[in-house]
């Protein structure tokens, strides 16, 4: 007996979810492996890399060797690191000597706030503009939105951020220039506004393109013509089109989240926001390997988790669509994002 939950066949859904989670696990393990092994691919002695900017005395090198078990076989070192990672234990920062997870935590909060705000902005504005462009196909507003979207998807986020910073903060004085303010929530939100818009510009533009082409496809469909031929209200026609276009748009949400987490590194640096990205960039410069590894793993896991969650949601909303378009449909043939 096939058990149904709404339109979803439960056994099929369970199989799909299990498959998708397994893929997620494989991706995360592979990523963690790559991130960890980079330290060893680097030319020279890993102990020296871990010295960072301290003075490399023989005693210090010996201590580091012991602390990081550098004389153990590679795989057992990796296993130990991964096990620590499960408990958010990434060792100590070379730069500050403080625990890596304590160092990262406050930065992570800021980055999450930033990403969430820009997710909201890009989702609302991107989808709305995409629909507006499709509905006004060939008109001026379509042209303007399409060009803006092309610029948004092509321009690197830090370059766009710099232009925004100069125009809106420096010249027009509409927004603060640097940092996240004096600590009050309202002030922080105020400081995050322009960076969030910058982040949203790039990924929102992708959403515009995906939404526009999905809605155009639905508008040209036979069922649309047939609904119009029956004098069904335009509102209801648009609702049907949006429902049919939604899997294509929703699937891109995974891409959007990946783009947000990827670009945040650069945008934070432009606006001097003390988030994960800024910490990553400065830790890279300081060769603070444990911090770099921890942040990279954290961001990579979030990116993979986001796309997994989105895929599962899309499946539950419309299983047949997923079956038609395959497990991971990344927008059209050429839609992708800087991440």
């Amino acid at each position: 007996m096939i058990r149904q939950w709404g339109d979803v066949n439960i056994r099929g859904a369970a199989r799909y979810i299990a498959k998708r989670i397994a893929e997620f696990a494989v991706s995360v393990v592979a990523l963690s492996f790559v991130i960890f092994s980079l330290l060893y691919i680097a030319p020279g002695d890993p102990a020296r890399s871990l010295v960072g900017t301290r003075k490399a005395t023989p005693e210090l090198l010996a201590r580091i060797r012991e602390q990081y078990h550098l004389d153990d076989p590679f795989l057992s070192q990796y296993g130990r690191w991964l096990e620590g990672a499960f408990h958010f234990d990434f060792g100590e920062s070379i730069r500050s000597g403080a625990s890596v997870s304590d160092t990262i935590a406050p930065h992570a909060v800021v980055t999450f706030e930033l990403v969430l705000i820009s997710l909201a902005i890009s989702a609302v504005v991107g989808v709305a503009c995409g629909i507006a462009a499709a509905k006004g196909r060939g008109r001026l507003r379509d042209g303007a939105i399409t060009v803006a979207a092309l610029v948004g998807t092509s321009a690197p986020s830090y370059a766009a951020g710099l232009v925004f910073l100069y125009v809106f903060a420096l010249k027009l004085g509409l927004f603060p220039i640097y940092g996240i303010g004096n600590g009050s929530a309202a002030d922080e939100l105020w400081h995050l506004a322009l960076p969030a818009v910058t982040l949203a510009f790039g990924v929102g533009a992708l959403l515009v393109q995906i939404t526009r082409s999905a809605m155009l496809k639905e508008a040209a469909s036979d069922y649309t013509v047939f609904m119009r031929a029956r004098a069904i209200s335009p509102l209801r026609v648009t609702a049907a089109q949006m429902k049919n276009a939604s899997p294509a748009i929703l699937t891109s949400a995974g891409l959007v989240l990946a783009g947000l987490f990827g670009s945040t590194v650069l945008v934070e640096s432009v606006f001097s926001i003390p988030g994960l990205g800024n910490l990553l960039a400065s830790s890279v410069t300081f060769h603070d390997v444990p911090v770099v590894q921890a942040i990279a793993l954290l961001l990579a896991v979030f990116i993979c988790a986001a796309s997994t969650a989105v895929d599962i949601c899309v499946y539950l909303i419309n299983p047949s669509w997923v079956q038609r378009h395959g497990v991971r449909w990344k927008g059209g043939r050429h839609e992708r994002i800087h991440a």
Partner: peptide
């Protein structure tokens, strides 16, 4: 391809360039 596709390329490049130098 699936596996490499799931990797955030800019992030990895930053980390790799940073660590490998």
């Amino acid at each position: 391809a699936d596996l490499t596709l799931s990797m955030p390329s800019l992030l990895l490049a930053i980390v790799a360039a940073g660590i490998i130098g």
